[in-house]
């Protein structure tokens, strides 16, 4: 009673899925020769919702999915012309929902007056929930969410507590991973400079 038409139909669907990859392999073979389907430049087609046929496995670590610009990895501090943009205002530490940011403001060694830069900056990425509030609410665009994801570590206290040295990233890194945002920033900066020049 159970083995009847619809069961065969269901099996047909799985079987079609099974052969689809081979059919697609052949299609690519006629287009581009042996192994054409798995060349890195075909990744966008294999990963497209409408054009992909058959298996769509990303052959990590040989190839990687491109991360979208807005992807939130772990925070980093932008260093521009040898100086951090950060002014140690502490907004990020205040908005951080799990409270994993710790800042000590630098002070002038001679006068003891507080400076507008951090002396120490720690982010405990073993607590960080990657919400991106620090980057979203930073008034100086100094902290951004990076795109580093491959940071598996052997030691929790040594490797997962990021200090100033590990948080510091050059501006070019920011420009590379956030092109649109960087362009908008530059535009704003130029507009501001132009307005100042006009005055």
């Amino acid at each position: 009673m159970y083995a009847s038409l619809h069961l065969v139909k269901s099996l047909g669907i799985t079987f079609r899925r099974f052969v689809e990859t081979y059919v697609d392999d052949l299609r690519w073979f006629f287009k581009g020769g042996f192994g054409a389907r798995y060349r890195p430049d075909t990744l966008p087609i294999r990963q497209s919702p409408t054009k992909s046929r058959g298996i769509f496995t990303v052959q990590y670590p040989a190839e990687r999915l491109p991360l979208p610009e807005r992807f939130r990895g772990f925070p980093f501090l932008i260093e521009e012309e040898g100086k951090l943009r950060c002014t140690a205002c502490g907004t990020c530490a205040r908005v951080c929902p799990p409270q994993c940011i710790w800042i000590v403001r630098a002070s002038d060694p001679e006068t003891g007056k507080p400076l507008r830069e951090p002396a120490e900056f720690y982010i405990d990425i073993s607590i960080c929930m990657q919400c991106g509030f620090c980057a979203e609410f930073c008034p100086f665009d100094a902290i951004k969410m990076g795109h580093e994801i491959e940071i598996a570590a052997f030691d929790r206290e040594k490797d997962l507590l990021l200090d100033l040295e590990r948080l510091r990233k050059p501006l070019s890194y920011h420009a590379q991973i956030h092109p649109t945002e960087y362009a908008a920033e530059q535009e704003k900066k130029q507009a501001r400079a132009a307005a100042r020049a006009r005055k």
Partner: peptide, 27 residues
């Protein structure tokens, strides 16, 4: 654009596939 591709093309096919696969399946 991606949302449109999904909502108009990709996902309806998925529902049809699941429908054909399970709804009348005797087991």
């Amino acid at each position: 654009a991606l949302a449109r591709e999904l909502a108009f093309e990709r996902l309806p096919r998925f529902i049809d596939k699941v429908d054909a696969y399970l709804t009348e399946n005797e087991i």
